[in-house]
């Protein structure tokens, strides 16, 4: 029995091509049925994410199976399928790397494992996950877990939003009862606010020079808008201040924050300055209870996380290699008459 992997991903196909090949969850059972009816194919799983569409199949004749897959996908999309393909044991290694996040656009991202599990579960429900596929995917989940726990491949945040979230968590711990004040209604501050909301931040206040834009953004993120003249009063209630205005001078200064910090007791203030030129005077970082980070520092932290992850790739590969060996032994044992008896 051979394991075959065929597909397209972010490295081999542009987004407009990937869009055409993407498989919605409700379309998957029909496609799986078509794929497993290809001559020589005994089982199939389809993994479709924003960065890849891949078919994993158990087959006695990979060449014929690949040809069949190309025809099915071309008929479905009207495009010639630019599929890359891997045979055993490379297909096994590829799945293990994909599930571990090593083949992702952002190395070490963990969302992919959930997507692989979903793909396997859809195939199981459709009845196209055979014993070999079952063993292969269970092994892949185990590998992904080992890679995650035994290496630092998932270490640190890798985007400005996730860095802001991690810093906020290292200041406040639980983010659920925190209040965010957005100064300026730019796209990057909106994304950062949404990242914080995704981790539990409930209350947001938006202040912008154009009140209408503040009101619009407040409506979108479920917050409240205030006039720009009142932001310095609102900061007294805020735990996190995200600033991204086009102001000429410094808006957030030690003079403005000193009275605010005096009345806050032990409560800290996290200032995220996303504006260029900067809105916050760097001197506020020296004030007790104030933590300031700007675009440069956030991007630097994200870049360093990626460097750490990159350094871990070699360890992950060797871990995966040992698991590929283990799986191949199992696969070969299926053909061993001693074992079958």
């Amino acid at each position: 029995m051979n394991i075959l992997c065929a597909g397209i991903n972010h490295r081999t196909a542009r987004l407009d091509v990937r869009e055409r090949f993407a498989v919605a969850t409700e379309e998957a059972p029909a496609l799986l049925s078509d794929l497993s009816s290809v001559e020589g194919v005994s089982g199939a799983v389809v993994l479709s994410t924003c960065n890849r569409v891949e078919i994993y199949a158990s087959s006695l004749c990979p060449v014929r199976a690949l040809d069949g897959f190309r025809k099915i996908l071309s008929a479905r999309t009207g495009l010639e399928a630019p599929l890359y393909h891997h045979d055993t044991p490379y297909a096994v290694r590829h799945l293990f790397r994909v599930a571990s996040g090593l083949d992702s656009m952002v190395i070490g991202e963990t969302e992919i494992l959930g997507q692989v599990k979903k793909a396997y579960s859809v195939a199981s429900e459709a009845g196209t996950a055979t014993r070999t596929m079952h063993k292969l995917f269970q092994h892949a989940f185990h590998v992904a877990k080992s890679v995650r726990t035994e290496t630092q491949i998932t270490s640190g945040p890798t985007s400005v939003g996730s860095v802001a979230v991690e810093l906020a968590e290292k200041i406040f711990g639980d983010l659920r009862h925190l209040r965010v004040l957005l100064l300026g209604a730019g796209e990057i501050s909106e994304r950062t606010a949404r990242s914080l909301q995704s981790r539990g931040v409930r209350s947001s206040v938006v202040s912008n020079r154009t009140y209408e834009r503040a009101a619009q953004l407040a409506a979108e993120i479920g917050g409240m808008a205030i006039h720009f003249d009142h932001w310095d009063k609102a900061v007294a209630d805020a735990d996190i201040l995200i600033s991204s205005t086009n102001a000429d001078g410094r808006l957030v200064t030690p003079e403005k924050l000193a009275p605010v910090m005096k009345g806050r007791g032990e409560r800290s203030l996290f200032v995220i300055d996303l504006a260029v030129p900067r809105d916050a005077d760097p001197a506020i970082n020296d004030m007790e209870g104030v933590f300031l980070h700007d675009v440069d520092s956030l991007q630097q932290i994200a870049a360093e996380s990626l460097v750490i992850r990159q350094r871990e790739v070699e360890r992950c590969e060797s871990l995966i290699e040992s698991h590929v060996g283990g799986f191949m032994k199992w696969l070969q044992s299926l053909h061993d008459p001693e074992w079958q008896r």
């Binding site: 810093l167 290292k170 970082n285 933590f291 300031l292 630097q300 932290i301 360093e304």
Partner: peptide
């Protein structure tokens, strides 16, 4: 660490 622009590994 939190006030530094380049927190070290211990920060995490």
């Amino acid at each position: 660490q939190l006030k530094s622009r380049r927190p070290s590994a211990i920060f995490h």
